Amino acid sequence: MSLTAAKKKQFRAIGHNLKPVVIVADKGLTEGVITETLRALDDHELIKVKFAVGDREVKQQLIVELCQKTEAEVVQTIGKIALIYKSAAEPNPMLSNLTRPS
């Protein structure tokens, strides 16, 4: 499922005020990081992930690998932060960053 340009624009606007909820360090994608990312995506659908990795190529590989393992899509990357999206099967309106009241 590929996001349209309009959806990406909408998600970037929502994501602007979000804080990173998952941090990927030099150890890479551990089972705990993947589990926590899946939990956060299930709860919030749209999340920011911080990559505390110095090398750009390694960071880009980690972003792609994380999205493949979680079946999520990258909305935007700026510096060390990636905004990713995965639709929840049954979104909770009070937790989802897409439906929660502002």
Rank of each mutant, 00 (worst) to 15 (best):
L3W: 06
E73H: 12
E73R: 13
F11N: 00
K19Q: 11
I47D: 02
V75R: 04
A40Q: 14
T35G: 12
K7A: 06
T70I: 07
K27R: 13
A72R: 10
K86S: 03
I47W: 04
D42K: 10
Q60M: 14
G28M: 03
N97H: 12
R56I: 13
L46W: 01
K19Y: 03
I81D: 09
H44R: 07
I34Q: 06
Q10P: 01
K48A: 07
E36V: 00
F51M: 05
K7D: 05
A72M: 08
I23S: 09
E90K: 10
V22Q: 02
P93L: 13
L95T: 10
V21M: 07
D42M: 06
I23N: 09
H44K: 09
L29D: 12
K80D: 15
K48F: 08
Y85A: 09
K50E: 10
Q68Y: 14
V49H: 08
Q76D: 15
V74S: 13
R100V: 01
N17F: 11
F11K: 00
A52Y: 12
K59D: 07
N92K: 09
P93M: 08
G15A: 01
Q10K: 11
L95F: 03
E57W: 08
A13S: 11
A52H: 10
T70L: 01
E36K: 02
I34W: 02
A6E: 12
N97D: 05
K80E: 14
G79I: 09
T30C: 03
